[in-house]
Design a protein around this nucleic acid. Sequence first.
DNA 1: CTTCCTCTGTGAATATTTTCACTAATAGTA
DNA 2: TACTATTAGTGAAAATATTCACAGAGGAAG
Lengths: 216, 216
Amino acid sequence: MEIKRTPKPSIIRLCSILNFLEDQENLGKENIFSQEIGEYLDLPAFSIRKDISYIGEIGNTIAGYNISKLKAHIEDKLKLSGTQNTCLVGLGSLGTAILNYEKLNSSNFKLVAVFDTNLNKLEMIKLKIRAYPAYQIEEIVKKHSITAAIITVPSKSTQEVANKLIKGGVRGIINFTPTLIRSGRNDVVVRNIDLLNELRILQALIALKSIDSAGE
Amino acid sequence: MEIKRTPKPSIIRLCSILNFLEDQENLGKENIFSQEIGEYLDLPAFSIRKDISYIGEIGNTIAGYNISKLKAHIEDKLKLSGTQNTCLVGLGSLGTAILNYEKLNSSNFKLVAVFDTNLNKLEMIKLKIRAYPAYQIEEIVKKHSITAAIITVPSKSTQEVANKLIKGGVRGIINFTPTLIRSGRNDVVVRNIDLLNELRILQALIALKSIDSAGE
DNA sequence: CTTCCTCTGTGAATATTTTCACTAATAGTA
DNA sequence: TACTATTAGTGAAAATATTCACAGAGGAAG
């Protein structure tokens, strides 16, 4: 029963490591040392090795890690290889910006539907991605087996939209709204991203750092 | 020397609590219990009390917390009360979306300058906020005592922009770019927000949750 | 063939964070 | 007044995460 669990912070760091590996591979690099990865993530080398060790032995004492092998290994262990059908709810300026985000198309996340309450906006969309009115969320999510969603609607509709998404079968939500989402179930993951709150956290952490430095 | 430090996760949660308190106050509420705050943040009541306890005793055994008092207390202890001059670098679609974000104007963060390399874009800006070419970053940041910045430039210029900002005096950066920023100093705080990476983390955490549930 | 050097992987120590169980305060009520 | 019910605050225990120090692997150099 005692399977060594990967700590959540390690999982999150492994995702960043994967990002970095992709970049390095595109630059033509084949092998990399924990040291170099650590410099990128601003973390000591042993911490990188520890994170990687949770998903299994893979490195080599001479050449470090083979980039493509390590990449595949992380993708495999973190179940990151399959394509994930994704939708976007809310076509305000942030939603539109996300829609224009080229890099999304070349990723594992396929944007298969967008939703908005405003039908005029929907008519204006001339992309390959199908647009639907918000009342169809549950139906369309089910139909296209959408598992991840990005929400950029006005704050007061956030919870309602989330409920529909979850009922339809969505298991992960990125919420750009200032309103926190309560899923009420533990098989749904929500990541809340609120610019204003991030700025606030920033300000608090800066104050904290000043105190730290003074103490040193 | 043994000052009881507030844990970083507590500080971050206190920022969310503050958000919630503002909402509740706007709804006309005067007092609140740790229980109710906990329900909003999806955390047990004792955890909320613990977070609040780090910044000092403030509650009341009968009425719970007085909202405006608790708000003021958090703002005070987390040094969140002063206005912070802020700038935005990069006027792509995400940058423009942020520029249109009304709520920012009514917050502590005053957007006092925007930057872009593309001068045509700058000419189009007809807002009250002054726009400048990117090569003036350091100079303008100094001049206006800008301490916080939001970066939405293309990935390859991220580090260069960050360097200029930091040289000018910025102490906190929100980085919407997929490239991590290395500040090289411990009095600068960076929060990285990368949509694609967030989606990836989401996918990994969903897989993790499935395993968890299976084990129960 | 032996020594040296560098790098990964990891058990154990340390540090941090969360959870728990209990104390104290206080208002309402009999 | 005494009893009940409710809630904040908190030291201590438990859980979690990070850091450290070193063993082992293996190529290079002498």
